[in-house]
Design a binder for these strands. Structure first.
Lengths: 218, 218
DNA sequence: GTCTATAAGCTGATAGAC
DNA sequence: GTCTATCAGCTTATAGAC
């Protein structure tokens, strides 16, 4: 019997690494736009500008490539709200959470859309993640919010639903970007749109939590 | 604003009509879960429990069937906020908007997910809808909100972004239902989850708008 | 209108030269 | 590691019996 998993990358050549990253990047875009079943290996190869068989050299199957992309996304996911503690100022911590989440939506919309596709399909590849990683993280973060409530730093509020709400209002600007731009009559999600949007969302979320917003946003 | 749809085929037999509806219903589920390219005509036929060629008898191509489903969804879309007027009480009108939108997400999640898939892909089949139907509707509704602002019935707020926010927080419970249930540690989106969720969202949205929420929700 | 059989082309994946 | 050529199976769609 041998190991069930492959090499822990002890000696991966530079060329291999670069090709792999090019494939992963193209795969993120392709899976994000069309979902797992809708994605086409040929179109993915065109995006990466390499011959199709090269993909199968680095990732044995379509499924395995998909899982690799998913893993990369999850790894860099909810670091935005990680630094909040019971001692934090709720308004500052929530503002940081909203702004960082919106930044992710803006600068890596493909990651957001790929995750959205996976959720829409019922999370066939992320069922374990939802219970094993996400839920403990949320419970831990909910604990911080409940500490704020106990210290009367914030009104009584359902912490899980607050987190889910922040996810929804920020992620929606990535997933439904084309709708948001049409609605705002803007051509692209540029710096000014991002600024106005995050100001609006921070203001709204803080008010929703019963916290005093700063003087600026409308 | 959306006119009632007249029956285009006066001489359509009852059998034809029923078969068509069965196909449209199965197609909504199939396209919602897998997107246009990921959808499979065979799997769709299995859902509808009819032989595959029967689909092509009633709808010439996959694309044409997809468009028929999309049209059906759009037609019954944003009637929730249609009745708000400058004379309305903002809190009541917004509460109705949120609750009706969440009901749609709960009772017809496939419609929500199909629309989400179309948006994620950049709305290749709904570009015209976004500028020709959605935007005028939003502008008209924004006018009502601005009238509330002028009458000091509500704080100054960006009306387009408020509408988009209500869409996002309600639609997210349909599209990311599997994530929401894992996060809330619930098995299904039943009556009690729906009640708690809509109470939470109404309360949060009203506070976000600077309006006085009722005494109940947390 | 409904169904069986099947066509024409595309899909993920592999073999094997370099 | 990279590429050309190619396979077996699946895809949308159609032909034609009933």
């Amino acid at each position: 019997m041998v190991s069930l998993n492959e090499n822990p990358t002890p000696a991966e050549s530079e060329a291999t690494h670069q090709t792999k990253q090019k494939i992963l990047s193209a795969a993120k875009d392709e899976f994000a736009q069309f979902g797992f079943e809708g994605a086409r290996m040929q179109r993915l190869a065109n995006r990466a500008d390499i011959p199709k068989p090269n993909i199968h050299y680095h990732f044995k199957t379509k499924q395995q490539l998909y899982l690799a992309v998913l893993e990369q996304i999850i790894a860099s996911w909810n670091q935005a709200f990680n630094h909040a503690t019971p001692e934090s100022d709720p308004a500052e911590a929530l503002e940081l959470f909203v702004r960082e989440k919106l930044n992710q939506a803006r600068f890596d919309p493909a990651a957001s859309r790929l995750f959205a596709n996976e959720m829409i399909q019922g999370a066939p590849n992320l069922k374990r993640y939802l219970s094993t990683d996400m839920r403990p993280w949320v419970l831990d973060r909910a604990h911080v919010i409940l500490a704020w409530v106990a210290a009367k730093k914030i009104r009584p509020i359902d912490p899980e639903r607050l987190i889910f709400l922040v996810w929804s209002v920020t992620q929606h600007y990535a997933d439904f970007q084309v709708q948001a731009l049409a609605l705002l009559n803007r051509a692209e999600f540029d710096e000014s749109v991002a600024q106005e949007t995050s100001d609006f969302l921070v203001d709204f979320v803080l008010r929703g939590c019963g916290l005093q917003p700063k003087a600026n946003a409308s």
